[in-house]
């Protein structure tokens, strides 16, 4: 994974949650070796098919329609944690689903699931994939990260605001004003009390 910053010191966002301990032995590689960090204003997060896990860049790629775009106007340190295929692997861990990646600052946690390999704009396919993504996102947070942080006396809800994002290829133009996706957002917030978005972007505080 190409690094945006050469400084490998553990960022505060990770140490605040004691994530290295919480997620120890959950995957092929630990948090300390898997993370990357950056404080630039614009970042492009994507599902790297060649690497097999989530990566990012500070330069807009050709495939920008498949990217999750991050705006960081305050130049906070943002940490990228590739979960699926890196930090969270192994059948017992991922049973129930695991999402692709996490972006973390000292105040915010953002879980992301990419469905950019979906090429069909068929309505039913999109809803099916969106529901699958929700399962993956929720299990990753509620089934893995939150309880493991709790076990280390770290209450995620007290420390951070958390939101969830599902990323489809923008060129399919399927996430514009789609009433059923709006309904999924509402269901998610009413069931879990967290926010879910389909708009392929986030502006950090």
């Amino acid at each position: 994974m190409p690094r945006l910053l050469q400084n490998n010191d553990l960022p505060t966002a990770i140490t605040n949650l004691r994530l290295c301990t919480a997620l120890r032995n959950c995957g092929a590689i630990g948090v300390a070796d898997a993370f990357d960090k950056s404080s630039v204003e614009h970042l492009y997060v994507y599902d790297d098919q060649d690497l097999g896990y989530t990566d990012w860049n500070d330069i807009e790629p050709d495939f920008v329609s498949k990217c999750f775009m991050v705006t960081n106007p305050s130049n906070n340190t943002i940490v990228l944690l590739p979960l699926d295929g890196r930090i969270l692997t192994g059948n017992s861990i991922i049973a129930g689903g695991v999402c692709d990646g996490m972006l973390l600052t000292e105040k915010e946690m953002c879980l992301i699931e990419f469905k950019t390999n979906v090429t069909s704009s068929n309505y039913q396919t999109i809803i099916q994939r969106a529901n699958k993504a929700i399962e993956q996102l929720w299990h990753t947070f509620d089934g893995i990260i939150k309880p493991k942080c709790n076990n280390n006396d770290r209450n995620v809800d007290h420390l951070l605001s958390v939101d969830f994002h599902i990323v489809f290829d923008k060129d399919l133009e399927i996430t514009t004003a789609n009433s059923e996706l709006m309904d999924l957002q509402i269901q998610f917030v009413e069931d879990y009390k967290y926010q879910l978005y389909f708009d392929n972007e986030k502006r950090f505080q």
Partner: peptide, 24 residues
């Protein structure tokens, strides 16, 4: 015509944030 959808989603998401905050 398609960009109107973006506007609709922007308004929806703004309202959604308020709703989410009220629930939490």
């Amino acid at each position: 015509l398609d960009s109107a959808s973006d506007d609709i989603m922007r308004v929806f998401n703004s309202l959604y944030q308020y709703y989410a905050k009220a629930l939490t």
